[in-house]
Design a protein around this nucleic acid. Sequence first.
DNA 1: GGGATTTTGACAACCATTTTCATTCTGGTT
DNA 2: AACCAGAATGAAAATGGTTGTCAAAATCCC
Lengths: 129, 129
Amino acid sequence: MTTRRDAVHDTLRRSEGFRSAQDVYAEMRSDGAKIGLTTVYRALQALADGGKVDVLRTDDGESVYRACASGDHHHHLVCRRCGRTVEVAGPDVERWAESVGAEHGFTEVTHTVEVFGTCAACSAAARAS
Amino acid sequence: MTTRRDAVHDTLRRSEGFRSAQDVYAEMRSDGAKIGLTTVYRALQALADGGKVDVLRTDDGESVYRACASGDHHHHLVCRRCGRTVEVAGPDVERWAESVGAEHGFTEVTHTVEVFGTCAACSAAARAS
DNA sequence: GGGATTTTGACAACCATTTTCATTCTGGTT
DNA sequence: AACCAGAATGAAAATGGTTGTCAAAATCCC
């Protein structure tokens, strides 16, 4: 039954940026939800497999998840300070990856592209300090 | 004392693709080298910090390293079967990332781009089987 | 040589993630 | 309402890559 899974999905939807499984778990617990860590992991994995959420790895190896607006292929522009995320499309990049692969005889070409930066609000805050 | 570090660097240079710390350690040991796992990790980290080797994360969260030919900024086309890696440049991608960031008010924009595929040799082998 | 400093590595600690497995739901059936 | 098979749940234990600890060994400096 998908009650738990939906709860996880909802929690994710309420977040601005990418959240780790442990984050989601902690937040749900502090909201009074009765759920186990294992279930959160399982739900997140199922959602990711079904393409309902996007996954990426932080520099320290943690998996972080995000409920994205579009189910289409897209990439992310992530603020490295506050985690705020903008979904971006890059048709040029798709084409580039495909042609680079073909050029070297590679087939079944896929790619990962993520862009990081400091968002306007955060760089303003940094200047102020 | 860069003896150990150099040994690690050399081992890496002998490899075609990306290797994990544990891989490097195992290979050095089987070559008769007297080195500890801790030291391999430290050497790899130092080399990565110094820009001497490139790092990326596999899907299962392992860090993998590679001694790259150029110290310049570049990306990788990696065979998902045999790990063979081709270094590729993508001026268009650099520009795209930069402009996408600027468009949304982000500063200090960086990006990660990796392309995966099945190389000619591996797809031939797959067809043969 | 002798002491200060750095490097090394065996081992223990960490910590996110998985696995295990017994218990609790769920829905369907009689 | 009782029953049951199969899926879902979660507490606790296992896993495994990576990092910390700390004493021994190598190296440097005077």
